[in-house]
Design a protein around this nucleic acid. Structure first.
Ligand SMILES: NC(=O)c1ccc[n+]([C@@H]2O[C@H](COP(=O)([O-])OP(=O)(O)OC[C@H]3O[C@@H](n4cnc5c(N)ncnc54)[C@H](O)[C@@H]3O)[C@@H](O)[C@H]2O)c1
Ligand SMILES: NC(=O)c1ccc[n+]([C@@H]2O[C@H](COP(=O)([O-])OP(=O)(O)OC[C@H]3O[C@@H](n4cnc5c(N)ncnc54)[C@H](O)[C@@H]3O)[C@@H](O)[C@H]2O)c1
Lengths: 205, 205
DNA sequence: TACAATTCGTTATTAATTTCACGATTTATT
DNA sequence: AATAAATCGTGAAATTAATAACGAATTGTA
């Protein structure tokens, strides 16, 4: 039994969203090359990725939009809804709370936490902000799976520790430093400054 | 002459920042394995990456913090300052304007643009918000290199076109769709929802 | 019905990246 | 001086990922 590669998963997520958009536009068929254009890939890559999930395409026609979306979603997301807990309701945290992309039928931001007393117990975009002291209990109660770190880097490790104790299995870390977690917890760092430098270096080549 | 790999560049940026932090703490020596721990890599990977830049290490000792930082910076950033232009001063754009990481001695956010009349001509964190109509002229004037797209996805392509016309060579796109640009312009998509799904998938494996 | 055109699916090939293995260098110690 | 310990540097091996090449399937058409 072959295992799916992480790169294939990430591209499949792009395919899924592209397919959703196509469905909204009532496009019921799509070819590998058009899907490649939309998602910034190549037709071969698209077919190769999809082949992992079985034979879903129709030669000479392409893929049925709905069917392909269902096949990909079934494997990658099943009917799971991803529940998110946010730590830090400052500049970035507030923007995240207001982000409609985190309140869809597939993703729900279920709780926010802040250390500052004056931010606590307010509600932003339907999400209540709780004091950090209640976080472990509340996260377990709402069964969140993913945590977002949007606190200053000085506090990122303490937040990561709380997340681990709460049973979160995945973390997005926006603070510009790494946090230590047990190796069964997956951390993805998103570092704006490093991204800028990386792009800049790219343009210098 | 070997060319440097993009992955090495991205890790080198992490090394540089780690070295800066070590210097602040007056640590003047560092081993590949400790640098690996800090940056989430492996000691071999660190040495292999650094070996691209020459023989900078001292056997039995490690690397001189200052020297290694200089060598890496010299290759990757020279003494360039990266100038950024931001499009879209909404929830995310405002957070970015207030982000201190974008006002350092290596990165400067030099201009912001918005379509909405009521946002224009205000100043956030020392950066003035201009009407989009003036963007091409202003960006050329201040010699920005990198643009940030923080507008709704319906408007991302028009912003990308402006960026290309202004001569920007790199773009960070936070809108959840791809934009078309000439192939000499480098675009990095940062898609929060896809990141969440990706992490979630990881935790399911 | 035969043939051309189109697009998928898959194996083979190539390229890129990471990991391994180990020699070389330096310093400390007996 | 010889030996041990630590750490760098690097070619080779292994792994992972991307690309190419091409057969198979389907449909439209002469
Ligand atoms: N603002 C941006 O656009 C931006 C971009 C990229 C990364 N970041 C990073 O994201 C993080 C947050 O940035 P920001 O601009 O929102 O900062 P901020 O100072 O505006 O907000 C930080 C918030 O975290 C809260 N906090 C502190 N310690 C906490 C804890 N232990 N538990 C819960 N809440 C806690 C504070 O009360 C505050 O509300 C920082 O690490 C920053 O470097 C910010
Ligand atoms: N809020 C978040 O945390 C978040 C996270 C990830 C991605 N995003 C994405 O970032 C983008 C911005 O999100 P937001 O929450 O800030 O939205 P927002 O609606 O709060 O702000 C959008 C801003 O863009 C301006 N704008 C629209 N068209 C423009 C144009 N052509 N030129 C210049 N300015 C223009 C609007 O006037 C508005 O001020 C969206 O694409 C969103 O999907 C947001």
């Amino acid at each position: 039994m072959k295992t799916i590669s992480p790169k294939t998963i990430d591209r499949a997520l792009l395919y899924i969203r592209a397919l959703e958009n196509l469905l909204k536009k009532k496009r019921d068929k799509i070819s590998s090359s058009e899907l490649a254009d939309i998602t910034g890939s190549s037709d071969v890559q698209v077919r190769k990725d999809i082949s992992f999930f079985g034979k879903v395409g129709i030669p000479r026609i392409g893929y049925e939009t709905k069917k392909l979306k269902d096949v990909l979603e079934n494997f990658i997301l099943q009917d799971n809804i991803v529940h998110i807990a946010l730590f830090g309701v400052g500049n970035l945290g507030k923007a995240i709370l207001k982000y409609p992309g985190f309140q869809t039928d597939k993703i729900k931001l279920v709780a926010a936490f802040d250390k500052a007393k004056n931010k606590v117990l307010k509600e932003v975009n339907g999400v209540k902000i709780y004091p950090v002291e209640q976080s472990v209990r509340l996260i377990k109660k709402v069964h969140a799976e993913i945590g977002i770190i949007a606190v200053p880097s000085e506090n990122s490790q303490e937040v990561a520790d709380i997340m681990v104790n709460s049973g979160l299995k995945g973390i997005v870390n926006f603070a510009p430093n790494r946090v230590s977690v047990p190796k069964n917890v997956y951390v993805k760092d998103i570092d704006f400054s490093i991204e800028i430098f990386s792009i800049f270096s790219h343009t210098q080549l």
